[in-house]
Amino acid sequence: MPLFRNIHHNPEFFPDPKHFDPSRFEVAPKSNTFIPFGNGVHACPGNELAKLEMLIVVHHLVTKFRCEVVGQQRGIEYGRFPVPQQGLPAKFWKEVFNHQI
């Protein structure tokens, strides 16, 4: 299994790779440098559905809920996938918006 994390954190392709910078994707990355769903004949067949589902979830989270991290972050544990060492406990609550038109 390729180590996609190593590809995605290569400073040759992504300057300052540990810095969260969504604007780096305003221009499409160089071919075969960002492959979260695999590539070629072994690419995930559900990648478009997964992307759509992620967009829907994120949309609802940011438009209807507020959140905060509870406790302290203790770092990242790197394995097949990077995960918070002690988990990432968070508190979510539904935000009531008062829109006037």
Rank of each mutant, 00 (worst) to 15 (best):
V41M: 10
E95K: 14
K64A: 08
I56V: 14
F65N: 04
G87R: 09
P36Q: 00
G46T: 08
N39F: 15
V27D: 07
N98Y: 11
L55N: 12
H8M: 10
Q73P: 00
V69D: 00
K91W: 07
K94M: 08
N98W: 10
P15N: 08
V83Y: 01
P84F: 02
Q86L: 12
S23L: 07
G75Q: 02
M54C: 05
V96S: 14
A50V: 10
H19I: 13
V27G: 01
R66N: 08
F4H: 11
K18T: 12
I76Y: 00
N39R: 12
K64R: 14
Y78D: 02
A28M: 07
G38E: 11
F14R: 05
F13R: 05
D16I: 07
E68Q: 11
L55T: 01
A43E: 12
P17Y: 07
D21S: 11
F4Y: 11
N47L: 09
C67F: 13
F34Y: 15
L61A: 09
P29M: 12
R80F: 10
P15H: 13
M54D: 02
N39T: 13
S31K: 15
V83F: 02
E26P: 00
P36H: 01
P29W: 13
K51F: 01
V69Q: 08
G40S: 11
F34L: 13
G75L: 04
L61F: 11
P45D: 05
F92Y: 13
M1H: 05
I35D: 04
C44Y: 03
W93D: 01
S31N: 11
V69I: 15
V27A: 05
E12Q: 13
H99W: 07
E95G: 02
N47M: 12
H19K: 15
V69A: 07
R74C: 10
G87M: 06
D21V: 10
R24S: 06
C44R: 03
P11Y: 14
N6K: 14
L55V: 07
P45Y: 12
P15W: 14
E77T: 04
V83E: 00
R24D: 11
Q100N: 03
G71P: 09
P17R: 04
P11K: 01
F13P: 00
P2V: 12
K51L: 10
E53Q: 14
R74S: 14
N39G: 03
F65C: 07
A90E: 05
K94P: 01
G46C: 08
F37A: 04
R24M: 14
A28V: 09
K18L: 13
E68Y: 11
Q73W: 00
Q73N: 05
P2F: 15
V83K: 03
F92E: 08
G38T: 10
L61Q: 07
F97M: 09
H42I: 04
I35S: 05
E53M: 09
E77Y: 03
F25E: 05
D21N: 15
R74K: 14
H8E: 06
K18S: 12
E68S: 06
N32S: 09
L55I: 07
R5A: 02
V96G: 06
L88E: 03
R5T: 06
M1W: 03
C44M: 05
I76W: 08
E12K: 15
